[in-house]
């Protein structure tokens, strides 16, 4: 009986997680367009629903009812596989991400995470690395020069930025003496990691921007000089898959930044429920992502590579060394 309850709980949590992650892009696209509009002294969507709140729903209906077009020369199997490969990893990663300690519902303690892996951080980085296959396959299978160019750029970008990102979090792991995200947050109960690891956070955040392919590193879909990057030939629901995946990665980067460097659900000064603290911090980072997008221009491709290999990588290594020396 206990096993059934435990299993049911896990299934329920996973279902809830998937539902939240699938629905979150709706308010996020709305927010993005609103913020964009107001930063440019426009209003953003206003016509569908109150202040355009139903605009994402309208967009969703539009994407669902559009023709699902597959180019004649495309590799049909890979073409269909790529959006799923791009979409699944960001969802899988959230299995290892804790959102809080636990809440008691009807007398039973329910933990706010699906699993407490002791190598959660490794799991996150390993699984998120799979997403690059979706990009490669998507660009290659479409058999279009713009898509291939876009996917080549994206691959190079994602692979070269995963390295400094991985190095940047080692300092955090050293401080917490654990790779479990839960332990990392518990270790920050008194002082957040941002105090000890400002350089680590900087490297992590910049690499995170590049990982989620947002401005100033959105070379994958540079509207001006490539068609639309690796998803040039995608339309309808498959294109929506790529978009959802992009937003999920943006969310994941925000969540990881909060967990690793900003104390997770530990609050300061104001006593709020831990979950609310967590959500507020993540929302702030999501806003920062959007804010960056409508502030900065795009880096050139050689600049992107130079920043990744010549700035972020040495910085992250120096960070590891200094943290290690300080530990001794």
């Amino acid at each position: 009986m206990e096993l059934v309850v435990a299993l049911g709980l896990i299934v329920f949590k996973v279902a809830l997680l998937i539902a939240i992650l699938l629905l979150l892009p709706l308010p996020l696209t709305w927010l993005e367009r609103k913020v964009a509009g107001h930063m440019q002294q426009r209003m953003g969507p206003m016509r569908v629903g109150w202040h355009g709140l139903l605009q994402p729903v309208a967009d969703g209906i539009k994407l669902l009812t559009k023709e699902d077009h597959i180019p004649a020369e495309a590799d049909r199997f890979l073409f269909k596989l790529a959006p799923i490969l791009a979409l699944a990893p960001p969802f899988v990663v959230f299995v290892a991400v804790p959102f809080g300690e636990s809440v008691s519902v009807l007398g039973t303690e329910i933990t706010l995470y699906v699993s407490n892996m002791n190598v959660a951080l490794l799991f996150v980085f390993a699984v998120i690395g799979i997403e690059v296959y979706g990009v490669i396959f998507g660009g290659w299978a479409a058999n279009s020069k713009y898509a291939v160019l876009g996917s080549l750029r994206t691959c190079a970008q994602m692979i070269s930025y995963e390295i400094p990102m991985g190095f940047a979090v080692i300092g955090v792991v050293m401080l917490a003496q654990s790779m479990s995200l839960l332990e990392i947050v518990r270790a920050q109960a008194d002082v957040w990691n941002i105090v000890y690891q400002p350089v680590g956070f900087f490297v992590f955040f910049v690499a995170g921007l590049a990982e989620s392919q947002r401005i100033p590193f959105d070379l994958a879909e540079a509207e001006g000089d490539l068609g639309a990057g690796f998803h040039t030939e995608y339309s309808g629901i498959r294109f929506a898959f790529f978009m959802v995946s992009e937003y999920a990665i943006m969310l994941l980067t925000s969540v990881l930044a909060v967990i690793l460097f900003f104390g997770g659900w530990n609050g300061v000064l104001v006593p709020l429920p831990p979950l609310l603290w967590f959500v507020l911090k993540v929302a702030f980072f999501v806003y920062v992502f959007i804010w960056f997008r409508f502030t900065f221009p795009r880096y050139r491709y050689d600049q992107l590579m130079a920043i990744g290999w010549k700035v972020l990588l040495p910085l992250s290594m120096a960070n590891i060394i200094i943290t290690g020396v300080a530990f001794l």
Partner: peptide, 14 residues
């Protein structure tokens, strides 16, 4: 960033 943040709270011309 400060500039765009300031613009976000300015009145839209729309």
């Amino acid at each position: 960033l400060a500039l765009t943040f300031g613009y976000m709270f300015s009145r839209p011309v729309t």
